[in-house]
Design a protein around this nucleic acid. Structure first.
Length: 559
DNA sequence: GACGGCTCCAAA
DNA sequence: AACTTTTGGAGCCGTC
């Protein structure tokens, strides 16, 4: 059963729908204050809630103590269906650009605060007709696709991801401020007064200035730093750490140390702590579908998806609770093996370490080579060691490498590529197309041609990576959606944050916060969910998706 | 002072 | 000119 939820002048409307989006029962009008109770009551029938935007409805439901099992996020689904080649001839894809094509609202908090207990002040669109009509369009688009089940799975997984993201924002990641402060002190010294550098950073800076004989050097200014290095005889064209590491000079050690400490201070220092951690929880805002490939993005100063390893020790389970940290090992190459049906690569990964398996097959000599060659295959490397290893890799795994090569060739021609479940790459923009047509025109100069070739290859690297990164993102969504369901079962009706629940996600890694005595069951659920995600996406394909799982008190202990 | 582009670095 | 993907954020610096 589907139940559409949309706004009315005095509150909200709940409207039961059938598979095609036609009304099947009485619509129910509820006042703003009755919404949560009405949803909770109907939830007993396990409907799939159909709403315009999870970030608009779900935060306030959670705030009032109501979870839902399933939903259709029309905005996220629309974006997929609008671009997918599988639904290119649907009425939805052919229709005019509308409010459904807009990106997510500003921030979940703003929407939640504006809307909490006060529907009248919430954004008033879309209307009931919009929601019902859009759902019907989406159902028709999926039904008319060549393979409705894949696309249907993608929409369900994307929508489940939207629920997870709001639940994680609500629950927050356990964060001990005093531990974070201690970590910062160990690196930087005591918290400085505003406007001054921490003692240890200042000390490193003075050593650096002295070694370079540059008493006023500001290493945060690349031009300033470049000049100072040049005066010391160090000719580099950038100030990137990896480039500086190649140099031998007494100033390099303090310089690299300065960069490391300055980065920690500016990205995750005391200011970050003040603005991002409240009442022992970090509440990062995720943006499902925020990346073209379908990966999640994050926003707000939190930077959840760039959480550095240095400070993960501040993520500590509550007393009597544990963190179950699980990451999918070598996810992208395994996805590639499964998508391409490359049995050799599947076998290489069967024993657990895919890279070791590639070495064992004789394709390359060392594990490092296997790793760099695989990364090169998925990113499109043509030079260096990675480029040199490509022919051997192609001979050993023709189907896997053939798939990414085909994606690259398609992109170079301006064609669209798709993930396993049917998310399609955006077409290249007008400037790109112009560059290609100009390169074949009579007036084309050598510079035009080489620029066009460079742009074509660049877009080919993008589409090459798109199919793998995007399909891996789909696997992660299926994994997390399945896990979410299993955790709810383990909870046995207990409230979200009183039972095992997801608290963190980072592309191919999840963290579950759970009572200590539930950790074994959670670990089993995490592993079963990974296997299930593989079956959902690839059926009986012989590819395994092993996990590295750690049950720990603090995130820093995991790996 | 606001703004955008650039550089650098964190993550996968 | 570069030659390996996707992101977000801080700080610097030139422009308006």
């Amino acid at each position: 059963m589907y139940v559409a939820l949309f706004q009315s002048p005095h509150g909200a409307v709940l409207q039961p729908l059938d598979e095609r989006g036609d009304a099947t029962g009485e619509r129910r009008d509820v006042g703003a204050g009755e919404l949560a109770a009405a949803v909770a009551e109907l939830e007993g029938e396990h409907p799939r809630w159909v709403w315009d935007d999870t970030t608009r409805w779900y935060p306030r439901l959670l705030a009032e103590g109501v979870r839902v099992e399933r939903c259709v996020d029309l905005r996220l689904s629309h974006a997929i269906l609008r671009g997918s080649v599988m639904t290119a001839t649907s009425d939805l894809a052919l229709g005019a650009v509308s409010s459904w094509d807009r990106p997510a609202p500003e921030t979940v908090e703003v929407v939640a605060e504006a809307a909490l207990f006060d529907l009248d002040e919430a954004v008033v669109e879309p209307t009931d007709e919009d929601t019902l009509a859009e759902f019907a369009l989406q159902r028709a688009a999926v039904a008319g696709a060549d393979d409705p089940s894949r696309l249907g799975l993608l929409l369900a997984a994307e929508s489940a991801g939207a629920l997870v993201s709001v639940e994680m924002l609500h629950a927050g990641l356990p964060w001990r401020e005093e531990v974070h402060d201690a970590i910062l002190q160990s690196y930087l010294g005591p918290r400085p007064t505003p406007g001054t550098r921490p003692a240890k950073l200042q000390a490193v800076l003075e050593r650096l200035r002295s070694e370079l004989d540059a008493p006023t050097l500001n290493p945060d200014s690349p031009p300033d730093l470049l000049r100072a290095l040049g005066r010391a005889g160090l000719m580099v064209r950038s100030t990137r750490s990896w480039e500086l590491k190649k140099l031998t000079h007494p100033a390099i050690e303090p310089l690299l140390e300065y960069k490391k400490l300055a980065r920690l201070l500016s990205a995750n220092g005391w200011h970050w702590l003040d603005t991002n951690v409240r009442h022992g929880r970090f509440h990062p805002e995720y943006v499902p579908g925020g990346v073209v490939t379908g990966r999640w993005a994050s926003k707000g100063g939190g930077g959840a998806l760039q959480l550095p390893k240095q400070i993960r020790g501040a993520v500590i389970a509550d007393p009597g609770w544990k963190l179950v940290v699980a990451d999918a090992s070598q996810l992208e190459p395994r996805i590639l093996a499964a998508m391409s049906g490359d049995r050799g690569m599947a076998e290489a990964g069967a024993a657990g370490d895919l890279y070791a398996g590639i070495v064992a097959s004789g394709a390359v000599a060392t594990r490092d080579q296997a790793k760099v060659a695989m990364l090169g295959a998925m990113y499109g490397a043509t030079t260096g060691e990675s480029g040199r290893l490509m022919p051997a890799l192609t001979r050993a795994y023709p189907r896997a490498i053939g798939l990414v090569e085909a994606a690259a060739r398609a992109g170079e021609k301006g064609e669209i590529v798709s993930t396993r479940l049917g998310r399609s790459s955006p077409p290249p923009g007008p400037a790109w197309r112009e560059s290609q047509t100009e390169a074949y025109g009579e007036a084309a100069t050598d510079a035009d041609t080489s620029r066009a070739r460079s742009l074509a290859r660049s877009w080919g690297r993008f589409t090459r990576n798109f199919v793998v990164q995007g399909s891996a993102a789909e696997w992660a969504l299926c994994w997390m959606a399945t896990l979410r369901g299993k955790l709810a079962e383990l909870g046995g009706g207990a409230w979200l944050t009183d039972s095992p629940h997801l608290v963190f996600f980072m592309h191919d890694e999840v963290v579950v916060h759970c009572p200590a005595d539930a950790s074994a069951a959670v670990e089993a659920a995490v592993r079963e969910s990974a296997a299930q995600a593989g079956r959902l996406m690839f059926g009986a394909a012989p590819v395994t998706f092993p996990l590295t799982v750690a049950v720990v008190d603090d995130y820093g202990q995991a790996k």
